[in-house]
């Protein structure tokens, strides 16, 4: 029995959900990016790093962070809310297997991340001293993989978490430090001692690295290593997501 249309319908519903709130979900992150860019633009001026402009270094990091945040937020918020109001019951009775539910939510997360990315780039690219894109396919691949990876993580977390306190906790104590140590604002290698090692072990660092490489050609570690790391982590998350979804929907 094919469940393609079943899964696609759930995906469409989740896309519709963030479209209805597009000012909050797609547009408002752009404001924070613009603020960051304004501040950093003044501070770093025309400084360079390696052979690229420091502002485009930060810009690519910010864009990646933006995608991580929106793809993680989309399923985790939607699922925690649906637990609170009880609409999670729909997911328990519809004829969609756990993997299908996870895939639909992760794909919706990816869609929101890409939509946010495209909007942001269209509005901000004009202020960035970036003459050409180094490897557009790598950049697109990095964007898609990042959206899916953190979409899956958002599904796992949304299925697992019982309330918003848990979400705040994870965001403050896990996501934010990870983002800080992901080389968004400065190269990981400039961190002192242990922090530099920690940064390299930070899975998020690979997303930033691969995406930045695609746009600017600058990389801390080999882009291939980053790509393999992201794919492997995504596969693990995909399996974990199925286990977590099954468990949460059968409580």
């Amino acid at each position: 029995m094919s469940v393609a249309l079943h899964v696609f319908s759930l995906y469409s519903r989740e896309v519709m959900r963030f479209r209805k709130l597009w000012l909050d979900t797609v547009f408002s992150p752009i404001i924070s990016i613009i603020l960051y860019l304004a501040v950093f633009g003044i501070v770093v001026g025309t400084r360079t790093i390696g052979d690229i402009n420091f502002l485009s270094f930060i810009y690519t990091g910010l864009l990646c962070m933006l995608m991580v945040n929106s793809s993680f937020a989309n399923p985790s918020f939607a699922l925690i809310i649906s637990k609170n109001v009880g609409t999670i019951a729909d997911l328990q009775v519809v004829p969609i297997p756990p993997w299908g539910i996870g895939v639909a939510y992760a794909a919706a997360a990816l869609t929101r991340a890409i939509a946010t990315l495209v909007f942001t780039v269209l509005l901000t690219i004009w202020f960035i001293p970036l003459d050409s894109v180094h490897h557009i396919t790598v950049a697109i691949l990095a964007a898609i993989l990042t959206g899916l990876e953190f979409g899956l993580l958002g599904v796992i977390f949304g299925m697992w978490a019982k309330n918003f306190e848990a979400l705040t906790f994870i965001t403050t104590f896990i996501m934010q430090p990870m983002i800080f140590l992901a080389g968004v604002f400065f190269p990981i290698s400039t961190l002192p001692g242990i922090w530099s090692t920690l940064g390299l072990l930070n899975p998020l660092h690979h997303n930033v690295n691969l995406f930045r490489y695609g746009i600017t050609g600058y990389a801390d570690v080999s882009p291939l290593t980053s790509c393999i790391a992201i794919v492997s982590i995504s596969l693990i998350l995909f399996i974990w997501m199925q286990i977590q979804t099954k468990r949460s929907l059968k409580n």
């Binding site: 469940v3 249309l5 319908s9 469409s12 519709m16 959900r17 209805k20 519809v94 969609i96």
Partner: peptide, 18 residues
């Protein structure tokens, strides 16, 4: 689903049954 219209609720839900 509070955010959706009556039509949308039925539209997506029946979609999930293929």
């Amino acid at each position: 689903e509070m955010a959706f219209t009556v039509y949308e609720v039925l539209y997506y839900f029946s979609g999930m049954y293929g």
